[in-house]
Amino acid sequence: MGNTPKIEMRGICKAFGKKVVLSGVDLDVGVGESVVIIGGSGTGKSVTLKSILGLLTPDSGTVKVDGENVIGMGAADRERINHQFGMLFQGGALFDSLPVWENVTFGLLAEKRCTREDAPEISIEKLAMVGLNADVAYLMPSELSGGMQKRVGLARAIASDPEIIFFDEPTTGLDPIMADVINDLIVKVSREVGATALSITHDMASARKIADRIAMLYEGKIIWQGPVADIDHSGNEYVDQFINGRAEGPIQMAVRA
């Protein structure tokens, strides 16, 4: 315990072919803390997240979870580490061949923490946590609206009581009201399960709401990080430009070239 961060990233580099995406990301996420990584599209936010999850292997650098380096670890250890993760994917990534209840309890069933007989009931409990009623459990994901799919995705992410939850652009593609509902839910459920949260987004309203601390990713590096209260007087012109959404400033978008 004490001052070992839950997640500790040091010098993460990743390139796809000649395209360098990450060039030395350093970031700590404390136990129980909610950190939001902000940054423009294509700045490597998703790659950072996937490097921690083990979906991508960084070219160099270390990722420590509870002080244990997870890069290059064997499949069995990796699985053990992944047991404590939950993730909300950008598009929900619900399994469309399975009903909602089986989606929600998929992780629990895989880890044999519940039986198929109990699964529908457990899923209804989890769905209630994200404000969905019991009827939804027996629908197929394709029968749900975008906002409901996000909620089911959230229910699935928290179902196995993870210690760390990752949120990949949780509000993208939702209307402002639904986005706010999801933000509230994220804050609520992460507190309820007492999880550490790491989110990536480019939605500042969402970032302000769910973050304890914000880190900005630009050109493959964390260029600023600090408490959410400091974001408006960060003294960093890149951050200022981003949070105010100005086209003019030090960040040049490739589209205008």
Partner: peptide, 14 residues
């Protein structure tokens, strides 16, 4: 392409 395969990995399923 809809990240369902990544989702499997995060749900303790190979």
């Amino acid at each position: 392409v809809t990240e369902q395969i990544d989702a499997l990995t995060t749900l303790s399923t190979n």
